[in-house]
Design a protein around this nucleic acid. Structure first.
Lengths: 123, 123
DNA sequence: CTGGATCCCTCGCGATACTG
DNA sequence: CAGTATCGCGAGGGATCCAG
């Protein structure tokens, strides 16, 4: 290992690139936003209403992150009043596959988890 | 029924129970901790060293959460000096399956994501 | 060695007002 | 309609000390 590839802390294998991705999907809103876009392209205020408990600022930020990472595409129609639509890209759509697996697991096992939580509280 | 049914936030289906699960695994450390325990049971300070950039307090809290949710089992050996070992439960192990799928996706696509990020920065 | 308790500071995020 | 700018609070989490 001749020249120092400046690698401050990562472990080999999964350490490095995965963190960046999981940190992103781990935030409160990205998953919900992606799910909201699964079926059809939608507009800003439409997403705002459908997700419900998200603020404008967070939706805006989340959408920009997702766009930046290539999960969604943002299309501005030069009309008045302005219209902007968001839709999944192929990358975003492909991401939904493993994500659905995780959601499915959560749906199947949340009962066991809640039960475990109960037991813990009681003790 | 035109009157508004007060629907605060949940959607049917995935809305409710999944959030609780994903919020947990979404935090910075749970996934790393579970991965660290994948191969073998480990002790507290051992985890501390292997994960590296985690503080005692966060590791402690994460472990307690994971134990509370039934992902890991905590075993105290009544010795002196004290020894405590953590290991995955069956639930925890089953969780690793969909999670690995996600990690695999991340490994395959992080290049595309980084590329998309670059393009965005440049613009 | 395994953690709990405390201090303290950062900054994530909601609410609001404003712009194009 | 589709956002950005500003303010302000409160939780998250690191560092440190303490206990069993």
């Amino acid at each position: 290992m001749p020249a120092k590839t400046d690698e401050p802390k990562q472990q080999p294998g999964v350490g490095c690139p995965v963190r960046g991705v999981l940190d992103r999907i781990g935030d409160q809103w990205s998953l919900l936003t992606l799910e909201a876009l699964e079926d059809e392209k939608k507009r800003f205020n439409q997403l705002l209403r459908e997700i419900g408990d998200i603020s404008k600022q967070m939706l805006s930020k989340t959408l920009r992150h997702l766009e930046q990472d290539g999960f969604i595409r943002r299309t501005v129609y030069p009309e008045v009043p302005p219209r902007v639509e968001y839709e999944l890209t192929e990358l975003g759509r492909s991401f939904l596959i493993p994500m659905k697996a995780l959601v499915g697991w959560a749906e199947q096992n949340h009962a066991a988890i809640n039960s475990a939580r109960r037991r813990y509280e009681t003790a």
